[in-house]
Design a protein around this nucleic acid. Structure first.
Length: 611
RNA sequence: AGCGGGGUGGGGCAGCGUGGAGUGCCCGCCGGGCUCAUAACCCGGAGGUCGGAGGUUCAAGUCCUCCCCCCGCUACCA
C-alpha cells in the first residue's frame, strides 16, 4: 500500500492580485497531504506556483502602469511569502515565466504539431465583449449573449487548433473506468454529463496581445494561457530530464471547482496526445465562502490570509480551515468561528492537555518521564486512532481526520481526569507516575498525528518532549521511556484579546430600525433555575414590558428597581426559560460577571428615544 | 433552461458509496464535579417526525420516485 513516491500539485494561481483565503486553503490542504505522505516514507514532490501569462495579466499591469513582468514578479513573491508563512512545505514553486517552463512548453507544442495534433483553422464565433467569450449559434439566446443579453459580434479569424475532439471517447472511457480519477463524485458526474455533448477542438492561439509564449509555428500568436499553465505540471516534474520518469505521473492534482473542466478534459486530452501517462487522481475542493458568498476578486470579497495567520497563528488558521470545511465541499469562513475553535479546541482541549501533562511532569517528576507501565488499553486507543486517521487521510477526508485526532486529545483529558494524578500524588506516587507516563506517550503520539495539520504546533510539542518525528508509525506505540528528559513547558496557543469585532458595515437606515428607549425598572426578580437570568418589569409610557436579562451575576434584583435603563424596544419576542421576553436591555461587557448597565447620564423620562 | 450539490436537535457541520436503535463534532442552554492545567478540564441533562410526500425492505437520515426551498456550474474569461 505504501507508495514509493507521491507527486502532488496545487493549481498554480493567477496573480492579478494578492492571494486571498481561497488560495491559502488549497495550499494548506495540499500541504497536509504532502506532509502525511512524507511521514509515511514516500518520496514526495509537492509543487505549487503562479500562472503568469495571459491577457488579464497584461491588462492589469497596464492599468497599474507597470510592465507585466514587474506585476508578476511582485505578485508571485506575495504568493510565495504566503506559502512560507503558512508553513506550506512545497518542494517546487514554479512560475510559468521561468525559462525552464518556456523551454518545456516550446518542446511540447512542437511535439504536438509534429504528431499532427495541431492544425491551422478558423476561429469563429459570436463574441460578447462583456464576458469576453465566444459563443456558438446554438448557445445564443435570440441572437444575444446568454449571460448578458447584449448583442454579440461575429468574429472570424485564423488560428491554431488542438484536436481535442478526437479524445472525447477516450476521456469518457477513462472517467468511467477509473472512478477515483476525478473526485468527489459530484464533480465527476458533472463532467460525465457535459461530455455527452460533442467536444470541440480547442483553439490554442491568441492574437492581439503579446504577454504569453509565442507559438513556434507563427510568432505573431501567443499560446492560449491554459495550455501553457497546465504544462507547468510537466515542467515541475522535470520533463524531460532524469527526474521526470521518477516523478511522473502526478498522484494528485488538487484544484478548485472552477477549473475541473480544464483539468479533466483539456489537460487529459493534451496528455493523451503527448502519449504521457495520466495523473492518478484529480481532487476538486470547494470554495471558501464569506457571509454566504464566494470569495472573488471581481466582487471585491477578499480576505487576507496573512492577517489571520499573523493575528492568531498560522496553525490557528490552518486548523480552522481544515476542521471547519468539509473537504470537497464549500465551507464558510468567519473570524468569529476561528476565534471559537481556537479558544475551545486548540486552547481548551489540545493546549490544555499538553500543558497540564507537561507541567505536571515538570513540577512533580523533575522534568523526566516517570516510571510506569504501558496501559495497553490507552495504547490501543492511540494506535487505532492513528490507523483511522491514516485511512481518512488516504481518502482525503481531511476534516474528519483532524476531528479524529482532536478526539484523541479529548480522550487524553478524560484519561488524565479519571486517574486524578494530583490526588494519587499524595501517598500513591507510583500511580500518578504511571498515569503521566501514559499521558506523555499519548502527547507524543499527538505530536506525530498533528504534524501534517499543524506543523508548527507539532514541532513545539516534539521539541518540548525532546523527540524527533521521523515517521507515522511513531504514533502507534508508547516508546517514550522512563527517565527521558523534557523541556520546560511552554504554552502552545494564546487567545488574542481584542475581539477585533468584525465590523459588518451597518447602514444608517438599518440602525434607524433599532428602536432604543429609556425605560424604568419597576420590578426585578431572579428566575428559578438560573443564576444569571433576571426577570424585569419595565415601565414605558405606553405600558409595562417583561424582559429577561442575563445580568444576574452582575446585579441583584434589589439594586435594579427604580433605575432607568436602555431598552431595545422593537426586538422580536422570544421565550427564555419559559418566559416571554419583550425586548433586551443594554449592558457593557463580554462576560456574565462584571457587566455594566448602560444608563442615562442625566434625568430622562421613560420612553425617551435613544439615538 | 440543462446539469450538479445542499436542506440533520436553537446556530454551524459530519454521518449517506458497504441500510440495522437518531449516532458524532463545535458552539449555545441547564445542572453537577474537580482544582493538575492558559476560568482551562471532567460528568450529567433538556432539545430533533434527519425539507415534504410516496415506495423498496424484517429494517431507511442512509436506496428508489415525485415535489418544495437554497446554492453552484454551463468549455476557449485563469
Amino acid at each position: 500500500m505504501t507508495e514509493p513516491k507521491f507527486f502532488i500539485t496545487t493549481a498554480i494561481d493567477y496573480p492579478t492580485s494578492s492571494p486571498h483565503l481561497g488560495h491559502a486553503y488549497e495550499k494548506i490542504c495540499a500541504d497536509v497531504i504532502a506532509r502525511f505522505w512524507r511521514l509515511k516514507g514516500a518520496r514526495v514532490h509537492f509543487s505549487t506556483g503562479t500562472d503568469e501569462h495571459g491577457l488579464k495579466i497584461q491588462r492589469t499591469a497596464e492599468r497599474m502602469g507597470k510592465t507585466p513582468q514587474q506585476l508578476v514578479d511582485e505578485m508571485s513573491s506575495q504568493f510565495r511569502r504566503m506559502c512560507e508563512e503558512l508553513g506550506i512545505s512545497y518542494d517546487d514553486f514554479i512560475r510559468t515565466t521561468e525559462e525552464r517552463h518556456l523551454a518545456v512548453v516550446r518542446e511540447l507544442v512542437g511535439k504536438l504539431e509534429e504528431k499532427g495534433e495541431i492544425y491551422r483553422g478558423r476561429y469563429e464565433g459570436f463574441y460578447c465583449t462583456e464576458c469576453e467569450t465566444y459563443y456558438s449559434k446554438e448557445e445564443l439566446v435570440e441572437g444575444n449573449c446568454p449571460v448578458h443579453g447584449v448583442r454579440t459580434e461575429w468574429v472570424s479569424e485564423e488560428g491554431f487548433f488542438f484536436r481535442m475532439s478526437k479524445y472525447q471517447e477516450r476521456i469518457l472511457e477513462h472517467l468511467k473506468r477509473h472512478p477515483e480519477f476525478l473526485q468527489p463524485e459530484s464533480r465527476r458526474n458533472e463532467i460525465l454529463r457535459r461530455l455527452e455533448a460533442p467536444l470541440r477542438d480547442l483553439c490554442i492561439s491568441r492574437s492581439g496581445f503579446s504577454w504569453g509564449i509565442p507559438l513556434p509555428m507563427e510568432e505573431r500568436y501567443v499560446l492560449y494561457v491554459w495550455v501553457d499553465a497546465l504544462m507547468n505540471y510537466l515542467t515541475t516534474a522535470g520533463y524531460p530530464g532524469p527526474e521526470f520518469s521518477r516523478r511522473w505521473p502526478p498522484d494528485l492534482h488538487l484544484i478548485g471547482k472552477d477549473i475541473s473542466w480544464h483539468h479533466s478534459v483539456i489537460w487529459t486530452s493534451l496528455l493523451m496526445a503527448l502519449d504521457l501517462p495520466l495523473p492518478r487522481r484529480i481532487f476538486v475542493h470547494g470554495f471558501i465562502t464569506y457571509r454566504g458568498e464566494k470569495l472573488s476578486k471581481s466582487k471585491g470579497i477578499t480576505l487576507d490570509p496573512l492577517y489571520f495567520s499573523r493575528t492568531y497563528s498560522p496553525d490557528a488558521l490552518r486548523y480552522f480551515l481544515l476542521r471547519e470545511v468539509s473537504f470537497g465541499q464549500d465551507g464558510s469562513f468567519s473570524e468569529e468561528g476561528l476565534r471559537t475553535r481556537l479558544k475551545e479546541e486548540l486552547i481548551g482541549t489540545l493546549g490544555n492537555l499538553v500543558h497540564r501533562v507537561l507541567t505536571f511532569t515538570w513540577n512533580h517528576f523533575g522534568g523526566r518521564v516517570p516510571e510506569g507501565a504501558v496501559d495497553p488499553q490507552l495504547e490501543g486507543e492511540v494506535a487505532s486512532c492513528a490507523r483511522e486517521v491514516e485511512k481518512l487521510l488516504e481518502e482525503f477526508r481531511l476534516h474528519q481526520a483532524l476531528e479524529r485526532v482532536m478526539m484523541l486529545a479529548k480522550a487524553g483529558n478524560e484519561y488524565f481526569q479519571s486517574k486524578k494524578p494530583w490526588e494519587a500524588l499524595k501517598g500513591r506516587r507510583e500511580e500518578a507516575a504511571g498515569c503521566l507516563f501514559n499521558c506523555l506517550n499519548l502527547v507524543k503520539a499527538l505530536s506525530v498525528l498533528l504534524q501534517p495539520f499543524l506543523p508548527f504546533t507539532s514541532g513545539k510539542i516534539a521539541g518540548m518532549l525532546k523527540v524527533e518525528i521521523r515517521g507515522w508509525e511513531q504514533a502507534k506505540s508508547f516508546d517514550l521511556r522512563p527517565g527521558h528528559p523534557i523541556e520546560k513547558p511552554q504554552v502552545l496557543f494564546r487567545m488574542v484579546e481584542p475581539p477585533v469585532s468584525p465590523p459588518p458595515p451597518l447602514r444608517a437606515e438599518d440602525f434607524e430600525r433599532v428602536d432604543l428607549r429609556v425605560a424604568e425598572v419597576v420590578e426585578a426578580e431572579r428566575v428559578p433555575g438560573s443564576e444569571k437570568m433576571l426577570r424585569l418589569k419595565l415601565r414605558l409610557p405606553e405600558g409595562m414590558r417583561t424582559v429577561m436579562a442575563g445580568i444576574g451575576r452582575s446585579y441583584t434584583p434589589e439594586e435594579l428597581v427604580g433605575r432607568r435603563v436602555v431598552l431595545v424596544a422593537n426586538l422580536e419576542k422570544k421565550k427564555i426559560l419559559g418566559v416571554e421576553s419583550e425586548g433586551m436591555i443594554l449592558a457593557a461587557g463580554e462576560r456574565e460577571e462584571g457587566l455594566s448597565l448602560i444608563v442615562p447620564d442625566r434625568p430622562v423620562e421613560p420612553g425617551t428615544r435613544v439615538r
